[in-house]
Simulated assay, not measured.
Amino acid sequence: MSPRKRGLTEEAATTAILQACRMLRLPTIRGQFPELADGAARDQMSYRGFLAELLMAECDDRARRRSERRIKAASFPRDKSLRAFDFDANPNIDAAVVHTLATCEWVNKGEPLCLIGDSGTGKSHLLIALGTEAAMKGFRVRYTLATKLVNELVEAADDKQLSKTIARYGRVDLLCIDELGYMELDRRGAELLFQVLTEREEKNSVAIASNESFGGWTKTFTDPRLCAAIVDRLTFNGAIIQTGTESYRLAHTKAQTEHADSA
């Protein structure tokens, strides 16, 4: 029944709406309905149109909150976005390729991504930004440093919790592994990492950032056969972006220094 048929005053109707929104857990409608109602009256909106506006506002806000929760659950160390990435500063990186990756079709297909280049060339920025795009599109994402992941796997193996840990990393849609190649891993650590990659192979995506070309990965994975198997897992049907050797962070700092000196 409408408020008029129930004999409610405008004040009583507002109170009833607030109570109903609390019971039905509709916080966005509760917060926005007075403003939307005033706008609907001004625009002479139909009842159906007003109801649609209310429900769409609630749905949009719930989608935003879900995205925020997924981004938080990914454990990114800092906020990075594609909008903030300076493609002009690094001509090695094709903006069209990156924006195609931002559609996350590769995540949907369970394909890998490798970002290879020296420090300061934008690898981690792109890794986090593309991971954030995936989280915003509804995928479950997890970010970790390579050494942190290996240490966690070793501890899990010692505590006889390895299968649970590998299964947990296997469930996320996109696993982002940063700083792969910065440290040499012993055979046990490399084998445990290989188990995680094998668990995800052709099912869920892995994206890595490394300062070493694939030919230099034998410094990280000292067993050549294991190294070759890991490279195979991370490149099969995947995308490879070479970010180059020129640090644009260093170039930016030098430019600022030169500008300050000339001022």
Score class of each variant (00 low, 15 high):
199 E>A: 14
88 D>R: 09
101 L>Y: 00
96 A>T: 07
49 G>Y: 10
229 A>N: 06
5 K>S: 04
17 I>Q: 02
63 A>Y: 06
222 T>D: 11
169 Y>R: 04
262 S>D: 12
210 S>W: 07
161 Q>K: 15
178 D>P: 11
43 D>G: 03
83 R>I: 00
31 G>V: 02
46 S>H: 11
108 N>W: 02
222 T>Y: 04
200 R>W: 06
137 K>D: 01
117 G>S: 05
247 S>L: 15
204 N>R: 15
225 R>S: 08
46 S>R: 14
159 D>L: 08
142 R>G: 10
110 G>Y: 06
47 Y>R: 13
125 H>V: 03
149 L>Y: 07
55 L>F: 07
51 L>V: 15
114 C>G: 00
257 T>R: 14
157 A>K: 13
206 V>F: 12
7 G>N: 14
211 N>P: 10
219 K>S: 12
128 I>E: 01
154 V>T: 05
86 D>F: 03
34 P>K: 00
189 G>F: 09
187 R>E: 15
33 F>Q: 02
1 M>S: 11
106 W>G: 05
161 Q>W: 11
81 S>I: 01
29 I>T: 05
248 Y>T: 02
208 I>T: 03
121 T>N: 10
198 T>C: 13
193 L>C: 04
228 A>R: 07
7 G>M: 12
116 I>Q: 15
36 L>H: 10
118 D>T: 03
46 S>P: 14
10 E>N: 13
51 L>E: 14
204 N>C: 02
99 H>P: 00
241 I>N: 09
62 R>K: 14
26 L>C: 10
22 R>Y: 08
70 R>A: 15
145 L>D: 02
193 L>T: 03
10 E>K: 13
136 M>H: 00
12 A>Y: 04
82 L>G: 04
211 N>L: 11
14 T>H: 14
5 K>G: 01
135 A>C: 10
83 R>W: 09
191 E>I: 05
21 C>L: 06
207 A>Q: 09
69 R>G: 00
112 P>N: 00
113 L>A: 13
33 F>P: 02
174 L>R: 08
241 I>W: 09
186 D>C: 02
205 S>C: 05
148 K>Y: 13
69 R>S: 07
197 L>K: 03
126 L>I: 04
222 T>L: 07
8 L>Q: 10
140 R>C: 06
10 E>V: 14
126 L>W: 07
226 L>P: 12
257 T>Q: 13
2 S>A: 10
158 D>M: 10
258 E>F: 11
53 E>I: 02
24 L>G: 04
243 T>K: 08
137 K>H: 10
150 V>T: 05
111 E>T: 02
28 T>N: 12
55 L>E: 08
140 R>L: 07
108 N>F: 01
21 C>T: 11
